Amino acid sequence: MSEVIARTSTGKKQKAASLKPGLWAQIVRYRMSYLFLAPFMLLFIMFTVVPVFTAIGLSFTYYNILESPRWVGLLNYKTLFVNDDIFLKAVGNTLKFAVITGPVGYCMSFVLAWLIHQIPHKYRFFYTLCFYTPAITSGTAVAVVWAYLFSGDRYGMINSWAIRLGILDEPWLWLKDVKTILPVLILVSLWMSMGVGFLAFLAGLANVSREMYEAATIDGVKYRWQELWYVTLPAMKPQLLFGAVLTIVSSLQVFDISVALAGNPSTLYAGHVIMTHLNDYAFVRFEMGYAAAIAVVLFLLMVGLNRFIFNILGDKE
């Protein structure tokens, strides 16, 4: 009797295993879906996955483009964190930059998107265009305007106003003085921070159902800030997460504004960030192995911060 029961249970398990579709069976079954995903996956693998692993491999070599890569192990990373004082200063400047421009730019984007959402629909396009235009303008064009504002002579607009008002006795070298280079770069970056995250917030606000606000009113919500806290923010978690990730990436990848306004290198490396250090070794000195090590450190920094944001705003499910 026990043998019959054992055979029956074994047969049921084999039958269940045969009915359970394998990976290839699922691909065949949903072949049209995989076919539509194929172009994106191919481009993603070719231009994202392969370069990342290539950079990781090159970071353990000495490679100057002219010669074949030569294995040096952890020497590049040891040099970065032990002997390269300029890199450590660039990391400090980048983190200062990210800590200020990231949260402040993120909050500014959401608050402005929320305020624009309160005005009549027919006027929203005009205000959206006004706030979004700096983000789509090239860094070089923006630098021309801000370089005129912060010019170090009497013809600079900020110096001219400050001297007329009696705040300054002589022109201040805003983009050459160590104390003011980084604050100016932070100010310009905040002005340009209304990017894709800003549009994502606008789209998220537009997609919040009116029925949720009506239900909240019945439950006792009376004020706009209560609607924002109890209804809008919970309903916009995907857009908030998307905007946070973009803000982190953009704040850590600052480069154009730093080079255009402060130069490369800046005075005593006061405006030096990780991307300018990477550009220096990759395209000026052509030390690609060392540059790859810098890129890997920046990549790990981005991944770590994004993981932190996912733990805060992401859904555990």
Rank of each mutant, 00 (worst) to 15 (best):
S2W: 11
E3C: 11
I5T: 11
S9T: 12
G11P: 01
G11F: 05
K15C: 04
A16K: 12
G22C: 09
L23W: 14
Q26D: 02
S33D: 04
L37F: 14
A38R: 08
V52W: 07
F53S: 04
L58E: 02
Y63G: 00
P69V: 13
W71R: 05
L74N: 06
T79I: 09
F81T: 04
N83E: 07
D84N: 15
I86D: 07
V91W: 02
K96N: 01
I100Q: 02
G102N: 06
P103G: 07
W114E: 01
I116Q: 08
Q118R: 15
P120A: 15
K122F: 14
L129W: 13
Y132L: 03
A141M: 09
V145K: 06
A147K: 14
L149G: 03
L149F: 15
F150P: 00
R154Y: 11
S160C: 05
I167P: 00
K176D: 07
K176T: 07
K179F: 09
I181A: 09
L185W: 11
S189G: 07
W191M: 03
G197K: 15
L202V: 10
M212A: 13
G220Y: 10
K222I: 11
Y230W: 13
T232G: 06
L233M: 15
K237V: 05
K237L: 03
K237W: 06
L241P: 00
G243E: 05
V245W: 06
T247C: 10
S251I: 13
D256S: 08
G263Q: 10
S266M: 11
T267P: 00
A270V: 04
L278G: 01
D280T: 14
Y281R: 02
Y281P: 00
F283W: 07
M288W: 10
A291W: 09
G304L: 13
I312A: 04
L313P: 02
D315A: 06
